[in-house]
Structure formats: C-alpha cells, structure tokens
Amino acid sequence: MHASVCDFVLDVVQNSVEAGARLVELDLFEEGGRISVRVADDGRGMTGEERARALDPFRSDGGKHPGRRVGLGLPFLEQAVRAADGEFDLESRKGRGTTLRFSFPADHLDTPPTGDVPGLFRSALAFEGGYEMRIRRRREARPGEPGTEYEVIRSELREAAGDLSGATALILAGRYLESLEGSGDGPRE
C-alpha cells in the first residue's frame, strides 16, 4: 500500500502517461479540511467493463504485462479513500480519456499524510514522452504555515530547465518546485 497521498497521485499520473495521454491535468488542493485531487487525461480511456476491471485488484487486462493478471493501483487508492470516509469517482470514455477525482478528509485518522508535493510534481512531469501537463496547486494557510497557490505547465518548465530526463534539469526543476511550494533551499529573499 502506498504511504502518502502523493504516492497515490504519482501512480495515477503514471497510468495516464502509459495510456498515451497527450494532455494530463493534475489538481492538488488542500483547503476546507479536505485533500482533493483531480487527474484528467485524454488517453485511451476505458469501456464500462474495463473500468470495472481496473477497480478489481485481482483482474487486470494484461495490457502492460501479458500473462499478469493483478492490477493494484486504483484498487489500493479506492480502498484507502473508503477507509478514510473520503470520496472517489472514476469517469472514463473509451477513446476519449479518463478523469479521476478523489478526496480525503484532512483530519481523519486513516487519511495518509500528504507527502512530498514538489517531489511528486517533479516525478509526474518527468515521465518519458511528449505529453503536456498542467498542474494546479492550492494549499490554504495553516497556523504557522503560509498558504500557496501556483500553476506549472510542463512545456514551460522544460523550456526553462531543459529535458527533464537530464539530471541537471531534474535538480533545477526540483528547486523551482520547492520554492513554489515554500519548502527547500531556494533563492533567499
């Protein structure tokens, strides 16, 4: 099972990239007592039957690995969300794409920690392929911690930092994302 909300999100984004998406949208909001996530892609999408299989841990279409029949990504997520009295919604249309929305109540005992948000974004932006990605991030202020709000576009980041498979670009992109989030050792004021 994944250790943090960010781990779940990274898994879902990896699914979108593997589904041949040209555009992936990721929203990660922490506000109003909830951690809310939306991942939308224009990848190959699923039929109703395929959608049902995607949520069954012991059935996989074998598309990734012929011969293997276990697919745990979305079932893990749905189980974690249900355990924390959260909300889970998976919409998909064959040939059109998939939109996944889920949320956790921030104060529920079974809600996983949010995790490393800049690290999640760096990895989500750095999968191989020519996909575009738009990330929207909001975190409301908490006692002793200011809020933040920003947007990251993959093509713009690649133009500024370089190809995100190169270690230099990954290091620089990490620092940039940490500065947006308000963590790490970015440039001093």
């Binding site: 920003y150 713009e156 980041l157 133009e159 500024a160 930092a161 370089g162 230099t168 670009a169 620089l172 992109a173 620092r175 940039y176 500065s179 947006l180 308000g182 790490g184 050792d185 970015g186 440039p187 001093r188 004021e189």
Partner: peptide, 13 residues
C-alpha cells in the same frame, strides 16, 4: 524563501 520564476530557473540553468 521567495518563489522562483521561470526566468530565475533559466538563469540557474
């Protein structure tokens, strides 16, 4: 810590 801009990122690169 200030938020970096894409221009800051280009300079660092």
């Amino acid at each position: 810590m200030a938020k970096m801009t894409l221009e800051d990122l280009r300079k660092l690169r």
